[in-house]
């Protein structure tokens, strides 16, 4: 098997070393889904009430429940659910690649 350049990726040389099902293969470490994003959600710290509704609704999950909540821009696909769900309009969108 070809080894990946990225040292974080789990490299498995033979089938015997693999789990029976595709579990914990580490594939998401190199499959950074942020490249799919066309809009970038931005949390406005002064408007944010720390209700964590965005964290609950993020399907990825790409929002960390910190103070204020932080978006994981390596995995956020820009679906906009957090923007839609935020009751305080504290998340705005910006076109990606601007």
């Amino acid at each position: 098997m070809v080894k990946k350049k990225n040292s974080e990726v789990i490299v498995i040389e033979k089938a015997d070393d693999m789990p029976p099902m595709p579990a914990s293969m580490g594939s998401m470490r190199h499959n950074k889904t942020a490249s799919w994003r066309s809009i970038r959600p931005i949390i406005l710290e002064e408007k944010c009430k720390r209700c964590m509704i965005c964290w609950k609704f993020c399907p990825e999950p790409a929002i960390f429940p910190t103070d204020p909540p932080a978006i994981d821009y390596e995995y956020c696909k820009g679906c906009g659910i957090c923007i839609e769900e935020c009751p305080f309009d504290a998340i705005v969108s910006e076109k990606e690649g601007k």
């Binding site: 098997m1 070809v2 498995i12 033979k14 089938a15 693999m18 099902m21 595709p22 579990a23 914990s24 293969m25 594939s27 998401m28 499959n31």
Partner: peptide
């Protein structure tokens, strides 16, 4: 993670 993206490098095995 279960059933995540599996590249041709592993699917065959």
């Amino acid at each position: 993670s279960f059933g995540a993206l599996t590249s041709p490098e592993h699917y065959y095995e």
